[in-house]
Amino acid sequence: MPTVRLSDQQLVGRFSLLLEQLVRRLRTISSVGGISASAASALGRLGAEGPLRITELAQAEGVSQPAMTQLVARMSADGLVARTAPEGDRRGVLVVVTAHGRDVLERRRARHVGFLDELLGGLDPADRAAIAAALPALERLVDSGPPPFRSPKQRENPSQEEEHP
């Protein structure tokens, strides 16, 4: 099979379209827990990084503090997160994932893995190998993302891996 040369603009356009299609397909199977994509993202960040202040979580997720406060209130009402006071700071509030929240995250991830496993299983070995070979570059691409979407913990330790649903 001949190698196809794409211009940078063509590469970005095709890559963007493919990501949009994949995300749309993943969202259609992500009904576990009945939570929104925003809630799943915040929950995943809290699960990976541990407790965060609402302002830190808002900054890391790229939303306003009032919007995150509302999202945390909904997630708390659903039993996905709890609010707790940090040691030595009675005025501060940390958001932590509950056992129910971890269960919802695990079930969502299992559905995603199952779906992607099915998709990849339908490809020929050469295509699977090409995707496997691209994973390190895709990981570097994600890690090079803009700082506003990294939490204070990630900015302190850039090598820390982050899990998202």
Rank of each mutant, 00 (worst) to 15 (best):
G50E: 11
E156I: 04
A137L: 12
A39H: 02
R155M: 08
A58Y: 02
R155V: 07
R53S: 07
S159V: 00
Q9R: 15
A110S: 13
E162S: 03
A126M: 14
H100A: 05
V72G: 03
L17W: 12
P152M: 05
P86G: 05
R25F: 01
V97L: 04
D127R: 13
E56Q: 11
S144F: 00
Q70K: 15
S144Y: 04
S144P: 14
R111Y: 05
G145W: 12
Q10R: 13
A42F: 05
Q154C: 00
Q10M: 14
P51D: 14
G145D: 09
A85R: 15
A42V: 03
S76H: 15
R155L: 12
F115A: 03
R74A: 04
A129L: 09
P51Y: 05
R24T: 14
P148W: 01
H112F: 05
R102I: 06
I54M: 11
A37M: 09
L123W: 15
V4L: 15
A60I: 00
L22D: 09
T98C: 04
V93N: 04
M68N: 02
T55E: 09
L57M: 09
L43S: 02
R14N: 11
L26S: 06
I35N: 04
V32M: 09
S30A: 10
L80T: 01
T84F: 14
M68P: 10
R155P: 03
S144N: 11
L11T: 09
P148Q: 00
R14K: 11
E163C: 13
R150N: 04
S16C: 10
G62E: 06
S151G: 07
L6A: 10
V93P: 00
L138V: 11
R107G: 02
T28N: 15
Q65Y: 09
G34W: 04
L46S: 03
S76N: 14
V72C: 07
Q21R: 12
R45W: 01
G88D: 08
E61R: 15
P146Y: 10
V32A: 15
E87C: 09
E139H: 09
A82W: 10
I54R: 07
Q154A: 03
Q154L: 06
E106D: 15
S151I: 01
P125A: 09
T98E: 04
L116E: 02
P147D: 06
G44Y: 00
V97S: 02
Q9P: 05
G88K: 14
R140K: 13
D78L: 07
L119A: 12
D124I: 00
S64G: 11
A110L: 08
Q59S: 10
A58S: 10
R109K: 08
V12G: 00
G79P: 02
A132P: 13
V63I: 12
L105D: 01
L11H: 14
M75P: 08
A42T: 01
Q70A: 12
P147M: 03
R45L: 04
A42Q: 01
L11V: 04
P148D: 03
A37S: 11
A129C: 10
L105T: 01
V96Q: 11
L135S: 11
L11Q: 11
N157A: 06
R140W: 07
S159K: 09
P125H: 07
R74C: 02
R14P: 03
M1A: 11
A58V: 03
P152V: 02
H112C: 02
A132D: 10
D89Y: 08
H100S: 05
R27P: 02
G47V: 01
D89K: 13
D78N: 15
Q10N: 10
I35V: 10
E20W: 13
A67P: 14
A137M: 11
